[in-house]
């Protein structure tokens, strides 16, 4: 059950950096860069780093220098993403883009960077933090965050959904499919799998 053998399930490595980069921007879903996400010999002072403080009283820092070694904190991931589009619009060829965090954070960042014209070869992702999943109900298109179980009830249409390993980067979500569609009421017990 824990490995469904579906190849669209993303795999992750460490942030290795890129010596050929003109400039490197790292997003972290947390206040600090977790040491374990960096490949051996990678010095984070080579990156401009954006972090998430998860705190509302943070002063905005509009005059922050954009330079290797600077660290810019944001109140939340949403706060960070709201500034990211504008930041990437001003970038040119040679940027390398890295993100560290939980899965929905990584693929939200991926989608913003893709829309700004970066290709996947110009990005690196490291997965840390909770394994909880964002689920897309294939029947009614509701998105649900923080799903930790093999079966979850859709908050949109009420269907008991089996959480598949089939992953859409565009939706930053795994697919949920009604588990008792053929025989209504035949719902297996949910298992805690994604913590």
């Amino acid at each position: 059950m824990s490995d469904q053998g579906i190849k669209s399930k993303p795999t992750y490595g460490k942030i290795a950096g890129d010596k050929a980069a003109r400039y490197q921007l790292l997003l972290v879903e947390g206040a600090e860069i977790p040491a374990e996400v960096l490949a051996e010999g990678v010095d984070p002072s080579a990156f401009e780093t954006w972090t998430v403080a998860h705190a509302s009283a943070l002063p905005a820092a509009p005059m922050m220098d954009e330079a290797p070694g600077t660290v810019r904190p944001f109140r939340s991931a949403s706060h960070m993403f709201s500034a990211l589009e504008e930041r990437l619009d001003r970038e040119t060829m040679g940027l390398r883009f890295y993100a560290v965090g939980a899965e929905p954070f990584l693929w939200d960042a991926f989608n913003i960077a893709s829309a700004a014209g970066l290709s996947q070869q110009e990005m690196q992702f490291a997965h840390v933090g909770p394994k909880a999943r964002r689920i897309y109900c294939v029947h009614c298109r509701t998105l649900m965050d923080g799903v930790t179980t093999s079966i979850v009830t859709c908050t949109g249409c009420g269907a008991p959904l089996f959480v598949r390993d089939h992953f859409s980067k565009r939706l930053a979500s795994y697919m949920g499919v009604q588990v008792d569609a053929e025989a209504p009421g035949e719902v297996p017990a949910a298992e805690e799998l994604y913590k």
């Binding site: 190849k7 399930k9 294939v138 992953f167």
Partner: peptide, 22 residues
Amino acid sequence: WSFEFNIGMSFMEWHGPVPVAH
């Protein structure tokens, strides 16, 4: 197979659920 879910996927990703053939 869901087009709304799969649009934008790579060849390998959209064939992800097919057993054995990989």
